Structures are given as C-alpha cells and as structure tokens.
Amino acid sequence: MTSLELEQVIVLSRHGIRTPLPNTLDCLTAVTPKNWPQWQFLPGYLTTRGGTLESYFGHYLVNYLANLDFTLTSNDVFIYANSLQRTVATAQYFNVGAFAGLDIPVRHRYPIERMDAVFNPIIRDSSSTFKNRVLDDLKRHTGSSQLIDKLNQNLASTYDLLSDILDYKHSALYQQYRCEFSQLPTQIDIIKDEEPILIGPLALGTAIADAFTLQYYCAFAKQDIAWGEISTSLQWQMITNVKNQYLNLLFQSQQLAAHLALPLVEFITMLFTEQKHKFNLLVGHDSNIASLLSALGFQSYQLPEQYEKAPIGGKVVFYRYYDKQDQQHYFKAEYIYQTFEQIHLAQPLTSMTPPKHFTLNFTDLNPNSQGLYLWQEVSNKLHDFLVNA
C-alpha cells in the first residue's frame, strides 16, 4: 500500500480537432491550383469529431484518476478555457465525458472569439532592447546568424515534397514570386500586442501541414487527404515536422518562451497556491503548451506514436502528491495524448485502449526513485521564474 496521496491535479489541454484557421485560408488557396476539400464548420472551430474525442478523453481521465483514489465532487472541479469557440467547446465536451449530470460550469472570461490574456501568446514589451534580446536569443536557438536560413535548409526536402503535393509551380503564389517554395521571402518580427510574426516557407508550410493533418484526423476520404498524395509514415513525419519547427522557433526559445508563458505560469501558480479545487482543467493552444514547457525548463521530448510535438487534444498533467510517511509533498508531470492513429480512427479511450502517458522531466531537478520531484523544489522554481520574469 502506497503512502502517496494525490491531492491536486492541474491539466493544460490543447483544444480538440478544429478546422483550418481563418487567417490561413487565403494562403492555402494561393499556394495550389487544386481545390481544397470543404469543411462543414466555420474556420478555426472545433468539429463534432473533435468534440467526441474530447468526451472520450474526459471519461477516461476521470476514471484513471479514480483508480488512483482521486475521487471528485462538483465542488472539487474548476474548468477554465480561452474565450474562443474551439477552446470553450473542447472544455464543454470534456465536461460531458468526465462529469455528465454534475452542475459544473465551463468558465471563460470574455464573449466567444476574444482572446484571454492568460492564453494569449502576444508580445507585451515594445522596447527595442527587448526586441534585440529576443532576436539575439533566436540566433542562438537556431544556431544561425540568419535566424531562419538554417531551418529552411534543413527542411528543404520537406518543402520540395509539399511543392509536389500542391502542384505549387502552377499556383497563384508561384506566379507572383517566380521562385521555389523554399525561396519564398522570409520575415520575422517582434511587435507589441501581436504574436511573434513569421512570414515565409516555414509559416506557409505550417499552415499546409496543419490542413493535411486535420484532414487525416477527421478521416476524410483518402483522395481528399492531401489529394491522396501522402502514402507513407515518413512523409507524415516530414510534413508534421514543419509544424514542430515552427512551434520550436516562435514559442520555445528561452527569451520568447519565458515572456509568452508568464501569464499562464502566474495562473497555474495561483491554482497551486490557493488549492481551491482538486481538479483544474485549462484549455488553450499548442503555443501555450510549447512556451510553458520550455519556460519551466522541461527536457526536450519525442512523444511515441505521435508526429506532433503538441498533439491536438493532448494534455500536460501536473500532479501534486502528499507522502504520509515522510510528510513531504511531491510533483510529477505527464503528457497524456492520443496517438496519430487513435485520433484518425476516433478510438474510444478505455483502460483497454488508453491514451499514451509520457513522463516529462526537468532539466535542472533530480527526481527520486519513484520519478517524483520534491514539491518544494518545484515551488521554488515557479517562484524564481515569476520573480525574474
């Protein structure tokens, strides 16, 4: 019998399966002469399939926690989402799967389609000093004085693959620039009240890879998933890596990650400190997960059976334990997520067909033999981050 008692859980979830984002639709049209398959939902909205998968996830996670003797009443639960349709709807579907019949509200701060500062990864410093510090840090992060050039060189074969799938040479964008996909003009900028801005093949490739992945996740007809042009796991790995590199560049370099994650770290620290609720679900975006994990110093990782670094619907779970034997508090972090194929198949999540659990470790703290960190050390890390931010 273990002496560990699970006291508190905080879950940071990415929203579930959505449609392509509205700010990318013009780019997607311009980059190919082909007709994109149509979606039945508004741009950037959670799909019904995405909602179904979230309800599966909610049902699974609450049962998983119950097996850890972590039982919940309606007063124990706090659910909070960014004020966009896809995040609020994700929280609502999770709520149905996890707590059907209980009167648990899904909280969000603003009317739908207004970003909440807790989840909004925007620049909050207009000084040239900050901008130059970020750009210098990005050069260190990419290992290139030209920032994006090295990344684009590394992704050249993937850009060629995308170009072939899209028939890019016959697109409106090619007619405008008359250059290879990989040679499209690149620009990066850091502007107050905006997300970090990137224009060029990496940003465009990310939008394309996102659209193809969403088609696969929604089980479009084979001929409608990248027009039937993706046939191997290696191709999926290459294409999804474009998205991963975009996240890595804009949300995981040291300076940007710490800056962008600050409001979320403050909020999570408050939840841990006040301990009003045993179970806390926050629903945001891949940018939130990427910047938070980098800002808090978690080790780099590769999730088994997933190509995405921050899988759609995936959840970073923070556990706070109390050990009755040594009277110490402990901490553990996991990434719980559905595999690439589980999402594609819309597989129900049960104890027989569970999502993946992947342990997340800090770079600068040492876990004990059970893989747990002293809570005091983690608390000190949070405190130091906020003091130095």
Rank of each mutant, 00 (worst) to 15 (best):
L282E: 13
G297K: 13
Q302C: 09
A310Q: 13
E308D: 07
Q299F: 03
N288W: 11
L282V: 04
I289N: 12
L296W: 14
G313F: 01
Y307S: 10
E308A: 12
E308H: 01
S300C: 01
G313E: 00
L296N: 08
I312L: 07
F298M: 06
L281Q: 13
P311Q: 04
S294H: 14
F298A: 10
S300K: 10
L282G: 13
I289H: 06
G297D: 01
K309E: 01
A310W: 07
L282D: 11
Y301R: 14
Q306H: 01
Y301V: 12
I289L: 09
S300Q: 13
D286L: 05
H285R: 11
F279A: 09
V283N: 04
Y301Q: 04
A310R: 05
A295M: 00
P311E: 02
E305F: 09
Q299S: 14
H285L: 07
L292A: 10
G284V: 06
Y307Q: 12
V283H: 04
I312S: 06
L282Q: 07
G284T: 03
E308V: 00
G297T: 05
S300D: 15
Q306S: 13
G313Y: 05
H285N: 10
S287K: 08
L293R: 05
P311D: 02
G297P: 07
P311S: 03
Y307H: 15
L296G: 06
L292N: 07
Y301G: 04
P304T: 00
F298C: 08
F298H: 09
G313P: 12
H285I: 04
Q299P: 01
H285W: 07
P311Y: 02
D286R: 08
F298E: 01
A310P: 00
E305W: 04
A295S: 04
N288T: 12
G297L: 12
P304C: 03
V283G: 06
L303C: 07
A290I: 06
Y301I: 09
L303M: 10
N288K: 04
L296M: 15
S291V: 05
S294D: 05
F279D: 08
V283E: 05
E308I: 00
L281W: 05
G284W: 03
K309P: 00
F279P: 12
Q306C: 05
I312E: 00
L292F: 15
N288V: 12
D286S: 09
P304Q: 02
N280A: 11
Q306A: 14
P304F: 01
I312P: 07
